[in-house]
């Protein structure tokens, strides 16, 4: 169980790249983190991993991972309990090292098993990610593999750390649609078989709909709505969630511009007083210039001045 409360990340002390993110990810589930480009999804993941870029600092927020305070122990959990599967597998693998060597480096970091046994472990992990000929893959250089195979290697590396929590940052965007679907199915299977927990970062509602149990909607570095996927998709509460859903290809008549998502997210430099979404919100009211209240309903919450029945 991962709990993030009021996460705030500031770069160079004036760029608010994450303003106020709340997340709770129960064990053994896939949690979606969705929002437009630049709204701080990757930064949130990096903050959880303790891998923020130079100049970026945690300004506020609490993290707990199964009772451990991540702020004190992130470095020890990174790559042990929590691992990263990132967007572009070709870039995530070292181009000049064979896959076997890269797998082995992870295994020897996290265990003191002898080398031949590690080789067998590596092959088993590759097989577990659905790679048909693990021995051939172990001897290959990354550029000799297809994108889908590379992403499976990256997932196998994440498993090799022994982590049970994966942060998957847009794991399918760099892949073909069919290959992407296979990778999603693989992640789903790993959750079922190995009891993994996954934070699935995406800007694609379809991905959320397909694999996520719960999801958080991020806007300008703020969690504006969170809840079970099914409820979120069927009855979105926050106007931004509604806009995202309206932008789905099958939700609007062909050829129509997505009027709902015109405009842009506020830049990280901007100081936000009221509701961050107000400039683009079709429902905006004068009161929206003040901070919106947190509303809850069952297992979900959202931040909006609108009452649930109006929303």
């Amino acid at each position: 169980m991962l709990e993030v409360r009021g996460l705030q990340v500031v770069i160079n002390s004036d760029l608010q790249v994450v303003r106020k993110v709340d997340l709770s990810v129960p064990k053994g589930t896939i949690h979606g983190l969705i929002g437009e480009s630049g709204c701080g999804k990757t930064m949130t993941g990096m903050a959880i991993l303790g891998l923020l870029p130079k100049g970026a600092g945690l300004q506020a927020g609490t993290f707990t991972f199964e009772g451990t305070d991540l702020l004190s122990g992130a470095a020890t959990l990174r790559g042990r309990r929590i691992a990263l599967v990132s967007q572009d597998p070709a870039a995530a693998l070292n181009p000049v090292l064979r896959v076997g060597r890269q797998m082995d480096d992870v295994l020897r970091t996290h265990s003191n098993v002898a080398k031949p046994a590690r080789r067998a472990q590596a092959a088993a992990l590759l097989a577990a990610t659905g790679l048909p000929d693990p021995d051939r893959v172990l001897n290959a250089y990354p550029h000799q593999l297809s994108g889908g195979m590379q992403q499976r290697v990256v997932i196998a590396q994440a498993l090799a750390t022994g982590a049970d929590f994966l942060i998957a940052d847009e794991p399918t965007t760099a892949l073909d649609v069919t290959v992407g679907a296979q990778v999603l199915a693989l992640l789903r299977r790993l959750v079922a078989q190995r009891g993994l927990t996954i934070l699935m970062i995406t800007h694609d509602m379809d991905v959320v709909a397909e694999v996520c149990d719960r999801a958080s909607v991020l806007y300008a570095g703020i969690t504006v709505e969170e809840g079970p996927t099914e409820a979120l998709l069927r009855a979105p509460r926050h106007p931004y969630t509604k806009a995202l859903l309206a932008a789905l290809p099958d939700a609007r008549p062909k050829g129509q511009r997505l009027a709902a998502l015109e405009g842009a997210i506020p830049p990280p430099r901007q100081i936000i007083q009221g509701c961050a979404f107000a400039p683009r919100c079709p429902m905006a009211m004068p009161v929206c210039a003040t901070p919106p209240p947190r509303r809850t309903e069952g297992e979900r919450f959202w931040l909006c001045h609108l009452e649930a029945r109006d929303a």
Binding site: L51, D105, Q157
Partner: peptide, 17 residues
């Protein structure tokens, strides 16, 4: 600065390695 170095860090590899 490359991604695969960040990935190696995320995998918990030691700085020397």
């Amino acid at each position: 600065e490359r991604r695969h170095i960040l990935a190696a860090r995320a995998l918990g590899l030691s700085e020397a390695r």
